[in-house]
Write a protein that binds this DNA or RNA. Structure first.
Length: 116
DNA sequence: CCATTGACTTAAG
DNA sequence: CCTTAAGCCAATG
């Protein structure tokens, strides 16, 4: 029987996964930052969609990807609604009221860090 | 093919 | 900082 892996080697999704894997521990980035790094600043939603499929990969720390406001918008998509928050907290990232405290300090911009 | 939805972003108040 | 409205793009029905 065939494996249910939806994709192969398109680009956007694969690209997103690569960037997310590069996010340092204890850091976080936003969907828009990734989208912008990929050349489509307006495709922030697509990044989120890609992350939804990213759960198939163990190397993609989706918990390090939050929205621009530092809010854990995707927490409900994890195995448990609290899983994302715990993962972040385990990396010394303080989360309060479903959003990252001092997000500006833990924010990791691929465009700046990777110096495209 | 058209309509709806969504792990978003930006702008305006 | 919070709310509302509009824009954007692909997947899904």
């Amino acid at each position: 029987m065939e494996i249910s892996i939806p994709n192969k080697h398109k680009d956007f999704f694969h690209n997103v996964y690569d960037v997310v894997r590069l996010i340092p521990k204890g850091r976080a980035t936003s969907y828009g930052a990734i989208a912008k790094y990929l050349g489509s600043p307006k495709s922030s939603r697509m990044v989120g969609w890609a992350m939804n499929a990213a759960h198939q990969f163990s190397d993609v720390p989706a918990h390090r990807v939050v929205n621009r406001n530092g809010m854990l918008t995707g927490k409900m998509h994890f195995s448990s609604p609290n899983k994302m928050e715990e993962l972040l907290r385990a990396e010394n990232v303080h989360v309060k009221n479903d959003k990252i405290i001092d997000f500006k300090e833990v924010n990791w911009d691929p465009t700046a860090e990777l110096e495209l």
